[in-house]
Write a protein that binds this DNA or RNA. Structure first.
Lengths: 228, 228
DNA sequence: CCAATGCCTTGACTTAAGTCAAAAAAAAAT
DNA sequence: ATTTTTTTTTGACTTAAGTCAAGGCATTGG
């Protein structure tokens, strides 16, 4: 377990705060520990605070009437989640579950709102975090409505190359089933598309290791969204 | 032209602010007038402020590589838009165009950030507005990925009954082509589905006036998302 | 009143992607 | 190592929704 103050200081949400402010943040945070596959909250639950991932991995998802699940986000260390109902309404708009044994920091609503009220730079950070989220959602909606699955997959692979800092190979850090859900499709379809991409020498997929053979081709696909 | 201070005071963003604070807000706002069909900003443009609709109607949209357009939102009087890049990045993540002759209030970035920094309740209002947006986006993503077009249309009609305060009839305030785009589909498909809904006596559509014949049936459709 | 433009609907066809079912492969447990 | 369980892939089939093309309807202006 890493030092909690360090985790807090590293989180974008608390970026640039002075030391005594970080200590105040630490004061109101509550440690929570979860095993793998545990529910943190369910859609519709009353919210009295939000979380930051200190260690582990959490998925945010929605479930359709027939029980089909769609993953909206997967968050790792440093990422906050569940902040929306802190400022609007009282209920979580989606559900959260751990994908790994996880250590979360919980920030109670009232204490946090007090902190923000007395701390303009924290308020601005929070605004920045929410704005970033909105930006990501805009992209996600664009992908879902304007692109077909191959295009969405290409975008995701390109995003991974960036995140992992290598342009020629990436490692999936979630199962293919989860990736399918994140892309708004099903495992069978994802599998078939990966197969096609292999055949066209865009990538070379071996399990969770994916070699990028044609970076430019993926970019085209992410733009155009057509794969023949 | 209505009194600008009145418009400002009515906007959710400035809800509950004291009178001198409202005056400060008024001080920094700049009036802008647009004819119908004019571009307010384009995706990727540098942002140095955001807007509130004083009068008229504005669509926020994205365009795919092939030129296909998807409407993300349509905003009317009192709604702010373009706030995202004020707090994150510098570029607009989508484009905005007027659907009617419109009067907009523009709030320059730096002046507004200053105002927020000295005004915790304004900061909290802004957080609430962004959170509400995120909530709506969550629903939109759920709709796009979990429901078929009939389900999305049913959701939209139910939303209209609520907004217009009548459970038995609604009026479309945008063209069917625009509605199709807002629902993430095309006019032909929308037309066919409206036809089917008529045939099944869920609704009775006559131009932009739509009678709701089977409210419960629409609710089922919005939940299940299947139309036979 | 009639042209003219833009908006909406209809029909025939295509296609991306979902469903169902089963096999294969990989991972976990004994 | 060998079961057991989970994940992934493959195949045959269905279906929702997109494309293309044509026709109808309605609103506006001459």
């Amino acid at each position: 377990m890493k030092k909690i103050l360090h985790i807090i200081a590293e989180a974008p949400l608390f970026n640039g705060l002075a030391e005594d402010q970080l200590n105040q943040v630490r004061q109101i945070s509550v440690d929570k520990f979860y095993d793998k596959g545990k529910t943190v909250f369910l859609e519709g639950d009353d919210c009295n605070g939000f979380y930051i991932v200190a260690d582990g991995k959490v998925k945010i998802y929605k479930v359709s009437f027939e029980g089909k699940e769609h993953i909206l986000h997967i968050y790792g260390p440093g990422n906050p989640f569940g902040e929306v109902p802190v400022f609007s309404g009282r209920k979580f708009p989606a559900s959260a579950q751990t994908l790994l044994k996880s250590h979360l920091l919980f920030f109670p609503r009232t204490a946090f709102v007090d902190l923000i009220s007395n701390n303009p730079s924290l308020a601005l950070n929070m605004l920045a975090v929410l704005s970033m989220r909105l930006r990501q959602f805009t992209v996600q909606i664009e992908n879902l409505s304007l692109k077909e699955v191959p295009g969405r997959l290409a975008s995701y692979l390109l995003y991974l190359t960036e995140e992992q800092g290598r342009p020629d190979s990436v490692t999936l850090n979630i199962s293919k089933g989860q990736l399918a859900s994140l892309l708004g499709t099903i495992p069978e379809t994802l599998s078939r598309i990966l197969g096609k991409m292999n055949k066209q020498h865009l990538i070379e997929a071996g399990g969770r290791e994916i070699k990028i053979l044609d970076f430019r081709g993926l970019e085209d696909l992410a733009e155009y969204g057509k794969l023949q």
